[in-house]
Design a protein around this nucleic acid. Structure first.
Length: 264
DNA sequence: CATCTTGTTACGTT
DNA sequence: AAACGTAACAAGAT
């Protein structure tokens, strides 16, 4: 499910528990989702703590609690967060549940490609501080973007856009959307784009990420009409501009759709 | 039953 | 030393 905007949507769901104490924690300690964290430590340190705040960066989520406890979540392919009634009983895939007085905050992930991390200390964990600047930030310049693409010059541009170190938050449908809008063929080598194409790509990235956040992150509604998004599921999709059938191919192992007429 | 999936990472190779 | 391609992870939907 989750790319940039969906991640932000889920983050806000847990706002329901801000400023409230966690009375009880249940978790599925043996599950793979805890491969990078200690379920025992999470249970011990989050019980009795207060949820203070949260932040999303790309696809990464970080929740801070009183007592210097930090919970990192990644939603992987099938992760989601919910708010349930306080008498909620965790089902098979509800790997972590924080029970508060008024409700239960639930993290659920059937496939467990997601990840739960935990950190105890006064500062946010190191991995968080090392995350790359957001696509919407001033630091994400077209020059830096071009340099990154140059460094991965032999990779198909579609695959390069999925590298989170360079394009935090971009996932499969957003990458296709960005390339379609920038009029760049997804199979092109990342290092072979002209200055003009790089500029189009950069503008498209800003436009698509801002548009996705504006629409999807509010209520999980779809992106605006006229986006490739609406055409790229299943077969039979057509270019929103030309109404010609979209091309489909696996690029870097990921399903890719594009318009051969727009994108060169 | 076979095939697909909005994601990362370990690992072997270039 | 980096960058690259592929398999692997797990479970549900079609």
């Amino acid at each position: 499910v989750p790319e940039l905007a969906e991640v932000e949507y889920y983050r806000k769901r847990w706002d329901a528990g801000l400023g409230q104490r966690v009375e009880r924690v249940t978790l599925h300690r043996e599950k793979r989702i805890f491969r990078k964290s200690s379920p025992a430590a999470i249970k011990r340190l989050l019980s009795g703590s207060t949820l203070l705040g949260s932040e999303a960066r790309g696809k990464q989520l970080l929740f801070s609690f009183s007592g210097g406890a930090w919970l990192g979540l990644h939603l992987g392919m099938s992760g989601e967060m919910r708010v349930e009634a306080k008498k909620f009983v965790a089902d098979k895939h509800d790997h972590l549940v924080l029970f508060q007085r008024r409700q239960a905050l639930v993290f659920s992930d059937p496939r467990q490609f997601g990840l739960i991390r935990f950190h105890h200390g006064p500062e946010a964990p190191a991995w968080w501080a090392e995350l790359p600047p957001a696509l919407s930030s001033r630091e994400f310049t077209s020059q830096k973007m071009a340099a990154f693409l140059q460094r991965h010059g032999r990779l198909a541009i579609k695959s390069a856009l999925l590298l989170q170190r360079g394009f935090p938050g971009i996932g499969n449908w957003m990458a296709d959307e960005v390339l379609w809008r920038a009029k760049v063929d997804p199979r092109r080598r990342a290092g072979a784009l002209s200055t003009d194409e790089n500029m189009r790509l950069w503008r498209s990235l800003r436009h698509v990420s801002r548009g996705a956040l504006r629409h999807v992150s509010l209520d999980f509604s779809d992106p605006p009409r006229g986006w490739l998004f609406h055409e790229r599921w299943g077969r039979g999709g057509r270019c929103p501009i030309h109404r010609t059938a979209l091309q489909r191919e696996f690029i870097g192992g990921r399903a890719t759709a594009w318009c051969a007429q727009c994108q060169q």
